[in-house]
Design a protein around this nucleic acid. Structure first.
Length: 372
RNA sequence: GGAGGGGUUCCCGAGUGGCCAAAGGGAACAGACUGUAAAUCUGUCGUCGGACGACUUCGGAGGUUCGAAUCCUCCCCCCUCCA
């Protein structure tokens, strides 16, 4: 598999943090990297130009959603996802495994695959590892994800063990189903909160061999300590020369902690969804732009931020836009939040490159503490 | 001038003798959101008190009744139609 190259550029002295570079057919990605989520072939509220302005290097799209609408075959006929959505950078597609988890009762999971009902019209469908890969190949993403099962954090050992073993078998089927050689495939580590299952999952995936390795089944309701613990458990067993992706995280703190523990790629709906719900990220913590105390606040969202929104607009105006239900509120809030996340990653990379990630991490927390 | 309809808690609006501090919606205030069924969802929303409760409310004033937003009398205001 040569569709993806990973170069390890530097390792932090005092932590597991690492600086790297991924090369895909659609460009390079400096890691650690945050990947904005564009489930339905759009990062909600953002144009391509805006995504570039905030320095998005790679974005996500979702197999499940695009299969249902507009249909992966249609996207394939139109030249693939890059051409369809007019994004010429790298794209990672999630396999649809997470939807099996989040759609709950609409799904039935068996060894062959998952039968489910569309959340759009109730129609019945079937996705297996082979189908998921076929969809992702039609979409033409740079990085495909294995089709996996993502159990809730409350799942007990016996269930998680069986689930992880099935996910591992599915991983083999995914790899065997690949027909194209210009796409990379990442395996997904499962095993819930159980260290021995996580270890086993990592080792078995490593034996199969993937272009990169992802931790799945995190940020699904478990305690922070469990999440960080799983990262620590898996890290020593992950091949150093391959990118490591923690799926679905997280808060800014989660990202800093994951980088600290040696992970390279992250994605989360938090900056985009929460933006649309009025929650903004700043160097001093979060703020809810809906709150009455910003009614006459002339300051920018984050005094330390140099994004387009912070350079031009006041909290008072953004609060007004939100309350008035104006579409610009979603756009500005999303723009700022993505800028914050992507900037946090850029700063992390600089810190690692300069061998001061620990100090960076400490300062990150100090600023928050000072303004509580 | 005549006929009819109506004034309800910040707004709109249900309620027409007790189960009404009063449905529902909006606004307001606060919270949640982690591989997006999300520009979504939850809570509070007369005053005071932890809960139970107490007190003050349904245009105004009086009255009937054990009990009134609901019935009666007068007054004030608004709307529609006719002249």
């Amino acid at each position: 598999m040569t569709a993806l190259e990973f170069q390890l550029i530097a390792k932090d002295r005092d932590s597991a943090a690492r600086l790297g570079r991924i090369t895909t057919p659609h460009g390079r990605i400096a890691t650690p990297a945050f990947m904005p989520v564009g489930t339905q072939a759009t990062v909600k509220a953002m144009t391509r130009e805006e995504l570039k302005e905030v320095k998005s290097q790679i974005i996500l799209a979702n197999t499940y959603h695009l299969y249902l609408r507009p249909g992966h075959e249609l996207i394939g006929r139109l030249g693939g996802l890059h051409e369809f959505m007019c994004w010429d950078g790298p794209i990672l597609t999630d396999s649809g495994g997470f939807q099996v988890f989040s759609l709950g009762e609409l799904c039935k999971i068996r060894e062959e695959g998952v039968t489910f009902q569309s959340h759009l019209d109730g129609s019945r469908h079937f996705i297996s590892p082979e189908v998921s890969i076929a969809i992702q190949e039609a979409l033409g993403s740079d990085i495909m994800m294995c089709f996996d099962e993502c159990p809730p954090s409350s799942a007990e050992f016996g269930y998680v063990k069986k689930s992880m073993e099935m996910t591992t078998r599915w991983a083999v089927r995914c790899r065997d189903a690949m027909r194209r050689d210009d796409q990379a495939l990442f395996g997904i580590v499962q095993g819930g909160r159980f260290d021995e299952l996580r270890k086993e999952s990592v080792c078995r995936l490593r034996d199969i061999g993937f272009d990169g390795y992802a931790l799945g089944g995190l940020s699904v309701g478990e305690e922070k300590g469990v999440m960080y613990g799983v990262m620590e458990t898996c890290e020593p067993f992950l091949p150093e020369e391959r990118p490591r992706y923690v799926m679905g995280i997280g808060t800014p703190e989660d990202l800093v902690e994951a980088v600290y523990r040696g992970y390279d790629m992250f994605d989360c709906v938090m900056p985009t969804r929460n933006a649309r719900n009025g929650m903004l990220f700043t160097s001093e913590g979060t703020l809810n732009i809906k709150n009455a105390r910003y009614a006459e606040d002339r300051s920018p969202i984050d005094p330390e931020c140099d994004c387009y929104v912070c350079r031009n607009y006041s909290r008072a105006y953004l609060r007004h836009l939100y309350r008035a239900g104006e579409i610009l509120a979603s756009r500005f809030n999303t723009y700022h939040n993505l800028h914050y996340y992507l900037n946090l990653m850029e700063q992390s990379r600089e810190a690692i490159a300069e061998g001061r990630f620990n100090a960076f991490r400490k300062e990150f927390y100090n600023k928050r503490e000072a303004n509580r």
